[in-house]
Write a protein that binds this DNA or RNA. Structure first.
Lengths: 335, 335
DNA sequence: GGCGTCTCTGTTAACGCTAACAAGAATTGG
DNA sequence: CCAATTCTTGTTAGCGTTAACAGAGACGCC
C-alpha cells in the first residue's frame, strides 16, 4: 500500500497558498478570493487530493459517519430500512457504518454501540425492535445523538416508527368490512414491538366491532412458522379470515391452506404486512399493508441530524402511517 | 454533545504511568509489567475510556473499517452477502461502512469508492455484478486493497464469486435427469455477470446433452418479469421444464402457470436459484440452487485482509460452488 | 566487579486537519 | 486623506494516538 496520497500542505504548496486557505476552500468558507479558490481547486484536481476524514474527525471530534445498529439485515424490513437510511445519509454527505448483531440482548447491543462510539460516529440509529434493546440504550452515554427505529414506544428516547397499530387495524378492518365475522391472527415473535403493535391493532379492530378476539397463533416471521399455523387454521372450518404479521408468514399460511384444499380467497381470506415485492405474485396475490420505509428513513435521519446540529437530545417521536394494498387474497365469506 | 470522553492521558494520569504505556497495554504490546497492565486496565474501566479511532487512523494511516460498495441491498443476494460480510468483519475487529449506489455506472461506483477512500478505509469490497462496475474499478488507485464479489471474471482484479455456471449446469442437468427433453430459461438482466454465468451453465448443460437451447426468456430478477415470461411459457404446450435465474422469477412463473391451469410439477417442472428462505413454501416447494453467501463473505474478507497485511495486491480469485436443493417443483415429464 | 543484554517505561515527534488569533491589503466613511 | 472597518491570507497550536528513540534498572556472564 505504502504511498500515501497528497496532504493539504501539498495542495497548498502547488497553489501557492497556505494550507489553511485550502482548508477554507474545502469547507466553503466565504472569505476567499475567487481567483484563489480556483487556483486551489485546480491544485486539488491536479494532485487528486482527497481530504483525510480521520484527521478531520480528530480535530472536530466528530466524523461524517452515522452508525446503524441492526439485527438481522436479511429480513425484508430491516434490509429496506438500512438501504433507505444509507441513501438518505449519502445525500446529506454522511456515510453509514453498519453494526449488525446476532442477538438483540443487552450485551450485543451495547457492544455494537461501543464499537460505533470508538469510531466517533456523528450519531447512531438503532433498529431495535425488541425489549432488550431498549434496556441497553438506557445505559448509554447521554451525549451521543441517537434515534431508535421501531423501538419501545414507552421509553423516553427519540423514536421513529411505523404505525403498527394503525396498519394492523386497517388490515383487520378490511377483512371485517368484507363481511367476515372475526379475524384470526398469526403474529410475529412476542418480544418484537412490531409484533406487539400489530397484535394490538388487530385486537382493537375486533373489539371495536364487538368481537371477542380468537386465540393468537404465535409465529416468528418465517414462512415455516406461517406454514405450521396454517396447518392448524386449515383444519378449523370456522376460520374464514386470517391476518398475518408479515408477508412471509402469509406465504406459509397460503401454502398450508392450499395443501389442505382450502381455497383462497373463496373459503379463507388472508392479509399480510410489509408488501414485499413478491407479494403481488403469491397465489393468490396478497392483500397487505405497506410501510413506507423511505419515509421512516428520512424522518429518522432528519431527527438525528437535528440532534447533531443543535446538540440537544430532545425526545421527539414520529409515526409513519402505512397503507393498505388491496389484492386478490380477500373476498367476502361464503355462507 | 459537548463532553468529550477521557483521553489516553487521563487514563495514564490515573494509573500513574505515561500515555505510551497505556497505548502499549491497549495494543497488547508484550513488554509491560503484569502489575502495570492491571493498573492501566483498572483505570480504563474506571474512566470508561474508549480509544479514539480517528486518532489511531490518523497516525497509522488506516482505520479498522472496511468499505463495501453495493447496488441494491434489498435484493436477497446482496443483502445476505452484506450481512455475512459484516458478521465476518466484526469477528476480525473491523467495522463495515456501506456505500450503496443507485446505478452501477462508472460515475456512481467511482464516487462511492472515493467516499470510502476519503475515510481511509482499510480495504474495499465491491459487490459489482455488472459490466460498468468493472470499468470503474480499472481507474482506481492501485494501492488500496480491493476485492470484488460476483464481478467480471475476465478482469485482473481479486475476485470471489459464486460458481454461477456450475450452479446453472446442475439445475439444468437435474431437469434433464428427470427426463425432460429440453429446459427453458428465464434469465436475469443481461448486464449482470450472475445472469451471464447462469445462462452459460444452462447452455453448457443442454449442449452437452446434445440439445439445441430454446430461445431465452429475458427477465430482471423480479417476480413481475417472471410472471410475464410465465404467461408466455404457459401457452406453449411443448414446455415441460423451466430454469429461472432466481427464486423470485420462479415465483412469478409459478403464479402464471397456476393461472393458466398448468400444474407444477405434473405438467411443468421449475427450478430456481438462490434458495431464499421462502422457497420451501412456494406452491409447490421450489427446487433451487443455494449459493453459500457465508463462504463467499469469508473468502472475500480473507482475501482482503491478506492484501491489507501483506501490502501486495495479488489478483487471486476464488469460486464458491453452490448446492442444488431438491424440492417438489420437479418431476418427470408426462408423455 | 564491570559490561553487555534484556525488560520496562518515559519523552518527543509526527499524522493531517480545523480553530483561533494575527496581520496586511483593500475598502469605506467622514 | 486618514481612521475605521472589512476582506483575505498566514501563523500557530492543538486534537489523541502510535512510532522511534532514549534511559533506567535488573540480570547474567566472564
Amino acid at each position: 500500500m505504502a504511498v500515501h496520497g497528497p496532504a493539504m500542505t501539498d495542495v497548498a504548496r502547488l497553489a501557492g497558498v497556505s494550507h489553511q486557505t485550502v482548508s477554507r476552500v474545502l469547507n466553503g468558507h466565504p472569505n476567499v478570493r475567487e481567483q484563489t479558490r480556483l487556483r486551489v481547486r485546480a491544485a486539488i484536481a491536479e494532485l487528486g487530493y482527497r481530504p483525510n476524514g480521520a484527521a478531520r474527525a480528530l480535530v472536530t471530534g466528530r466524523s461524517q459517519v452515522i452508525g446503524v445498529v441492526a439485527q438481522n439485515t436479511t429480513l425484508y424490513g430491516p434490509a429496506s430500512l438500512l438501504a433507505a437510511l444509507e441513501q438518505t445519509a449519502a445525500e446529506e454527505g454522511f456515510a453509514v457504518s453498519v453494526g449488525s448483531v446476532r442477538n438483540l440482548d443487552h450485551g450485543s447491543i451495547s457492544a455494537a454501540v461501543e464499537r460505533h462510539l470508538s469510531h466517533r460516529v456523528a450519531g447512531i440509529v438503532v433498529i431495535a425492535p425488541v425489549e432488550s434493546a431498549g434496556e441497553a440504550l438506557e445505559h448509554l452515554p447521554k451525549d451521543v445523538p441517537l434515534v431508535t427505529v421501531d423501538g419501545d414506544p414507552s421509553r423516553p428516547v427519540p423514536l421513529v416508527t411505523v404505525d403498527q397499530v394503525a396498519g394492523a387495524r386497517a388490515a383487520t378492518q378490511h377483512l371485517l368490512d368484507a363481511g367476515h365475522r372475526t379475524v384470526w391472527h398469526v403474529s410475529g415473535p412476542s418480544d418484537w414491538f412490531d409484533s406487539v403493535g400489530r397484535i394490538d391493532g388487530w385486537r382493537q379492530a375486533l373489539l371495536a366491532a364487538g368481537v371477542e378476539p380468537p386465540p393468537l397463533m404465535p409465529g416468528d416471521w418465517s414462512a415455516a412458522s406461517g406454514y405450521r399455523s396454517g396447518q392448524m387454521l386449515a383444519r378449523m372450518p370456522e376460520v374464514t379470515a386470517v391476518f398475518t404479521a408479515n408477508d412471509h408468514l402469509a406465504l406459509g399460511v397460503l401454502r398450508a391452506l392450499h395443501e389442505f384444499g382450502r381455497r383462497v380467497p373463496d373459503e379463507i381470506s388472508v392479509v399480510g404486512f410489509d408488501d414485499v415485492p413478491e407479494a403481488a405474485y403469491f397465489i393468490p396475490p396478497l392483500t397487505t399493508v405497506r410501510p413506507d420505509f423511505d419515509a421512516v428513513a428520512r424522518a429518522s435521519l432528519q431527527m438525528l441530524l437535528a440532534q447533531i446540529e443543535s446538540g440537544t437530545g430532545g425526545a421527539l417521536r414520529q409515526t409513519i402511517a402505512p397503507a393498505l394494498v388491496a389484492r386478490e387474497s380477500v373476498a367476502p365469506p361464503r355462507h
